[in-house]
Amino acid sequence: MTATPEPMLQVSDLVIEFDTSAGRRRVVDGVSFSVQQGEVLGILGESGSGKTLSTLAVLGLVPGRPGVVGGRIDLVLDDRREALLADLPTVVSTPNRGPVRKDDRRWNRLVQRRWRPLWGRVMTAVFQNPRQSLDPLMTIGAQLDESVRLAEPTLGRLEVRGRSLDWLARVKLHEPARVHASYAHELSGGMCQRAMIAIALARQPRLLIADEPTTGLDTTVRQEIVELFQELLAAERRAMMYISHDIREVLFLAREIIVMRHGRIVEVVAAEDLKAGRGRRHPYTATLLAAADLPVGEVAS
């Protein structure tokens, strides 16, 4: 085996905070992880542990204030390293007393400068709520066409439509033409989810972030979606971050898995080791394994 290549994405010491009615709250607290080119990083963790926010930080899309206040996000593209949060210290100021402050305008400018060229082309996402992720006033087709056109600006009208219908067929939507002409409110949750996946994949990103893409779907559909991801990724060697509550899905797709709890990473483990029950497990990971009837192995105290 060769030495592991430099990871395509490296996140270190990420800190995300929010102002709430009960004061400042730190919801992601020093999270570090990395994603290798063409591989899947699985993220597990209980509700509210900060999984979604960690991936949103990678996308530069954390909502609310102050949001990302610390950490580094490094992206390696074609041997060029880009430090996305390099300018964060100029945006965030630390007063003597009280919580850190963040300049919203500067932060927005930073996001525009650093992330705008990356969105879609380098990384994109399938968010947690499929129906809310679709523009309610536009047909699925119009939104998918938009993706296709951005990925391949030279295509003609009919070619764009043909490509869109192809994508809808690839995510196993029956009657692609009907879905193409439908609005989000006319489709089921599972259909919206697949449409969303098609819209994301049509951009052909190097890194795809999938946030609980199977939650809310019935078992057979879940299976299909997971297999779909594997198929699509294997063919094109795209990298992915895959969030799920279902440990079996994560084991099936991912090579490396991180387990989060209360805004921190409690465990980083290879999928192989988890499956085989090798090594000492964090108690929380152990309960996840036990709940899924998987071999737990040794538990760290």
């Binding site: 994109t124 996402a125 968010f127 309610p136 993706s147 951005l150």
Partner: peptide, 23 residues
Amino acid sequence: RNAQFIAAIRAKGASTLPHTFRN
């Protein structure tokens, strides 16, 4: 502006303005 679909449109690299106006 804070709707999920606007974030999704941003994430795919499209301009959010036409979508915002229409909505």
